[in-house]
Design a protein around this nucleic acid. Structure first.
Lengths: 196, 196, 196, 196
DNA sequence: GATGAATGAGTTTTCATTCAT
DNA sequence: AATGAATGAAAACTCATTCAT
């Protein structure tokens, strides 16, 4: 019997090492060698789990979305509707160190995806999924009768989606000028602004 | 001083070649050699203008902001105040091919700036300048008495700033789903929403 | 001794997998991993049969000669002497797919043997054995009184040997230009030419 | 003005270094690194002349044929026809150290060409050119009335061609058993055998 | 000032072999 | 006996930078 290793576990371990390198040194420095070193593994061993750098990248990028999805699915909705909505939105915002790391990594991959075909489809898929989630929220608010009746739903969706991504960007780029508390305040301010 | 002009011209030429490579192949591919080739210049010649890759990058990143600033300064304000404001805001949004290129390049550099100290300060400077510009706009609207009197100016600034960057991001990432017309519609919708 | 048989069977299986890889992808691609994969065996298991790549190579090379020898020993000689001789000679010529494979593999190993000491001695041994076989044939023809009496036996031997290897080479290299039928015709033509 | 380097000269220098490595250590060891070292050049510099290993190989293989062709074109034909023919044939046989090296390198490349598409076409081209040369020789002998009138020209061509390649093979493989003197003797013996 | 040559350290990837189970 | 994991060395190739002309 060979040594039994949990492949999925190892892959996640390597993906997280990839994240750390990206955040510390940037995408360009996320070399196979550096990642292996960060994961305290030999480059040769790494090849058991990812045979190419591209595989490592797509898996690492995908893991970000998996983590976020799992957290959203685990959420309990029992408070006032507006607060429940805020709960969901702040899952994709850099509200704490864990989320900030995920968002930074996501931004790095997403920027790379603009020119890297192998990452492009995942980027597009997540764009659509996020938009679908935002759409659900806005529709729910509208159907619950919370919002102004004259509002343009389509534009409200785009506005909210852009606002969320803009806040995430600012929270990553200038965490001192856009701290979690301010992010939250803006989100609440916005949600209230579209309600009666 | 014709020499100086030539020198500056050559540097801009190289910076624009850098932009093209970044947009076509991504940041990682913006190597000295590729840029020289794109600019139809020898690697050796390039050294007369930029002695290191880092210099090339900072100059190229800076040129983006110069271009945008120049365009904003050249604007004529003679229409209704709301439209004038929209005019300014759309200068930093991917409304046409030229602006889209600038924004894409800016995003690439800005993402790299998260981990590259030599680009960091420019990124921060521009963040502050943009925020100052947005602040001016919101204050002007407030002082002109256009806005609701109960609005929270600070939060409105952050909201507008995040919205703009979010729209820019979406316009770059999914140009078909967030075309210039939609960007403009959302901006107008937002400006109107904060007015009486 | 069933164990021994199994062991030998497995080694032959692996040697044949080696042949297939060499013919398909060339000597450089005949890596341990590729051979194991081709034989549908794990790299680890392979080590029970061959502890080094070198062992695998020498065994695989040797198996070619064993196969040819066995076939020659199994031949029935009952026709006209000239045809019996042709029979022997065509066993070492690429007259059908099986022989062609053997010859190709042999050429690959033999070429490698020029610089690889571990394969060298086998190459030399086979060179001598083949020469001995050719010598027997020529001597037999001479002693049977078939050949011209003034012929130079030593040179005839070298000529026939070189001719055979040259035909084999051409049959491998350009199978469409030197098909089995042409090979046979040349061999018969040559044998007849040295007879009265 | 940049440093002026004779590109063609450098490429030949590298090709010859490749030959030396192939003869000393075999095809598998003809790595970019080893060749660079043999040519006393850095790997990086080598890339100015050959950007891939494949380019190096095709050039090196081609150089063998160029050398042989040039030597044949430089030959003076003024002796007895039979000796002139022998002169041509021995140019492609390992009659001295220089020719032996060329033939060994050629054999290595030719064997690799069986599975390497990038070398295949050159191998085939040379096969045809050599056959054309042999055809000329046999035809010339026939037309001069030297040969037996009943001989089969087509088979004689194939026989001579195979004989030459077989002798080359043996001269490379077992230079002590098939020295230049014996090669020459067999060639002359063969040529005389087909003459009246 | 211009330019191509040169180089050593870097990259991803592949390898034969050893090891633990 | 069997097998997958582990690893360090080596492969091809790329790079920013320096240098000579």
């Amino acid at each position: 019997m060979p040594k039994i290793v949990d492949h999925e576990k190892q892959k996640e371990l390597l993906a997280e090492a990839t994240w750390r390198v990206i955040i510390r040194d940037g995408m360009e420095q996320a070399t196979v060698r550096k990642v292996a070193e960060e994961a305290k593994m030999s480059v040769g061993s790494m090849r058991h789990y990812f045979s190419t750098q591209s595989e490592l990248y797509t898996y690492s990028m995908n893991l970000v979305t998996e983590r976020v999805k799992n957290r959203i699915q685990a959420l309990q909705f029992n408070g006032p509707p507006l607060m429940d909505m805020k709960k969901i939105l702040t899952e994709i915002l850099p509200m704490d160190e864990e989320r900030k790391i995920e968002m930074e990594v996501w931004l790095a991959f997403n920027t790379k995806a603009l020119t890297d075909p192998s990452l492009r489809s995942l980027s597009q898929k997540v764009y659509m999924e996020l938009k679908a989630a935002i759409t659900k929220i806005v529709n729910a608010m509208f159907n619950l009768g919370f919002t102004h009746s004259k509002m343009n739903i389509e534009l409200e969706i785009e506005r909210l989606y852009a606002l969320i991504d803009g806040l995430a960007l600012h929270g990553i780029q200038e965490p001192t000028k856009m701290p979690p508390s301010l992010i939250e305040a803006v989100v609440i301010y916005h949600l209230e602004s579209i309600c009666k």
